[in-house]
Nucleic acid binder design. Structure first.
Lengths: 335, 335
DNA sequence: TGAGACTGTGCAATCGTTTGTTCAAATTTA
DNA sequence: TAAATTTGAACAAACGATTGCACAGTCTCA
């Protein structure tokens, strides 16, 4: 029924040690005779023995497991990152345990603690909140951590993110080039670094343009509802901004809905640009111009950094910013 | 540095056994004195001891881990299921290891084998291919398995799916009610049960309507590309079908793109209805009418079945079909 | 022919928990 | 006061793998 080294050992009269060596491909190294190898392999295959990774991990102090901590596995942005990391890990012989911090720092601490007690070999996280302490402590004393997308200011933790500042700067410049001077920016979680950087990029582009301008920054969450409510308010302003910059896909959806509900049209009545790539943006009417982040590369680089840290047992701090690109739709009017 | 029961034991002079009992809240049951409990708890908190789940699992033969096997973690349909399962598992004190079968049966077998060697307590899978054997064997001998969305015909495995037949039947009836008689259905993976049932529902609705009709069934994959190519062919038919039924969100995206590229319009030139819920469908022009599946409930029920199987150590076969609902958009013309 | 080297394998400790059993001391009962 | 019971906690054996070390037998060489 449940096969172990010992059960096989008793059955074929070869010690567990020898079987272990053969199963792990160390037969040559330990000069085990071909006869023995054949006998063992025959039985191992016959009874479909699979070693207990639990026991192995306990002994070797290596679980071949990484922890992935995300704000929401259902968010398309994070689920793409997750898939790319899960696949990379699989290819390296690692499995991934995914936990959801639910945008809650207490849950997040609990998740980290679970990962530690599971002895993961490394952690990739898109943290919530702005307290790096638990992450830094774990990274320093226990397990390497790489942050992805979200990160902390002035921290020793490695991270991979996109160039949020530049992306927002370029998006805003694009609006300015199209004659927009009165622009509203609807932001997400105000604590998160990507959000801060995007807002800074937005403001800097307007300021540096030299043109006279009016900037509006509103909102406080990466959610459809936030996008909807803030847009409702923005559309009622007098004078009304000529363009809205939504700092995430979810916010954008709220923007679109509010514009539609107000009987207005994009881009005739108001221009729109968004952060985040999503395939459906090409299918909207009009297609939405957006700042596209290289999501898959972010995942791949994060796992690359993490595995390098695991395999060399180092803690070199790497802060990577990947370039964003503007994907043009038809949601911006030239005025 | 690395705290264990033994290290604490040596430091405070209380046996590992007693510490273990206290940490696990069994102090009362074993009548351990308040003094000892206090002393132990003080030290446990001071040095932030967390038990090794590896060692515990090895001893107790329970990992508090479930395996989640999906065709693609990035697919919004599956990522929603994943999130709902991950959260449920977390609430029950379980963690989830997610693996991606990449729609490949060899990879799928490898994933199952990994889960077994990791001694997961249960598995939730949306399998690819149509060979139930590995799943049935594992479910019978080793670890309970519940299938979600995808399942096998005539199998003893439990599954949770939506009422694909009825959903497709209703969608088709809806088209018929709107005067459509010549309808094309673009299917996904032809082996998968949900796809088969949807196609059957589609054909049955047309047949049972009693009207004279013309049915077209095309396609072979749940992908944007498949939707695009088949739509291109369909649009060139003479006479051209008046409606297209896309059997998934991804297929739908391909349909829309092909219609747009052909300079045609939904619903004036061709009506469209789709399977799968996705928030972006409400944001398209026109909003797309679709058969909405209760994704979150599917995840919740699957984990409910699995946990009941784990906790009672039973293998009762449950085959659940959840109702779908038609969410009306404006993508169907009345003719 | 005896010392050393090589071959092939087994022994036993270890990883960090949990848990059935044991046992001394304290307390109660007769 | 001796016997019986209760209290409180330690001992030691698992769980299933890995791995340093030991060792018996064979071979090589002087």
């Amino acid at each position: 029924m449940k096969e172990t080294l010992t059960s096989i050992s008793e059955r074929i009269g070869v010690s567990p040690a020898t079987i272990s060596r053969i199963v792990n491909g160390k037969a040559d190294k330990y000069r085990i005779s071909k006869e023995t190898v054949d006998k063992v392999m025959a039985e191992v295959n016959r009874c479909k023995y699979t070693p207990s990774l639990l026991a192995r991990s306990l002994r070797t102090n290596k679980t071949s497991t990484i922890g992935l901590l995300l704000p929401s596995a259902a968010n398309p942005f994070f689920s793409h990152i997750a898939e790319s990391i899960i696949k990379d890990a699989y290819a390296k012989g690692y499995i991934t345990i995914t936990l959801d911090n639910m945008e809650n720092e207490a849950v997040q601490r609990a998740c980290l603690s679970i990962m530690i007690s599971r002895k993961v070999d490394g952690i990739i996280a898109a943290p919530c909140g702005n307290d790096p302490t638990p992450f830094e402590e774990i990274n320093r004393t226990t397990t390497p951590i790489v942050l992805v997308d979200r990160y902390f200011e002035e921290s020793t933790l490695s991270h991979v993110t996109s160039n949020n500042y530049k992306g927002a700067f370029e998006a805003t410049s694009f609006l300015i080039q199209n004659g927009h001077r009165h622009i509203a920016c609807i932001q997400g979680d105000t604590q998160s670094m990507p959000n801060k950087r995007r807002v800074n990029g937005f403001l800097a582009a307007l300021k540096e343009s030299g043109e006279e301008h009016k900037a509006v920054v509103a909102g406080d969450a990466f959610s459809v509802q936030n996008g909807y409510l803030e847009t409702k308010l923005i559309l009622n302003m007098n004078p009304r901004p000529t363009a809205i910059f939504a700092l995430s896909y979810t916010i954008l959806l709220g923007v679109i809905k509010a514009v539609q509900d107000s009987g207005l049209h994009i881009p005739d009545d108001i221009s729109v640009i968004s952060f985040d790539e999503n395939i459906s943006l090409d299918y909207m009417t009009p297609p939405i111009t957006r700042v596209s982040q290289p999501v898959e590369e972010m995942g791949k680089l994060a796992s690359k950094l993490l595995f390098s840290s695991i395999e060399n047992n180092t803690r070199k701090t790497n802060k990577l910013e990947l370039v964003t690109t503007i994907k043009a739709g038809q949601s911006i009017r030239h005025i």
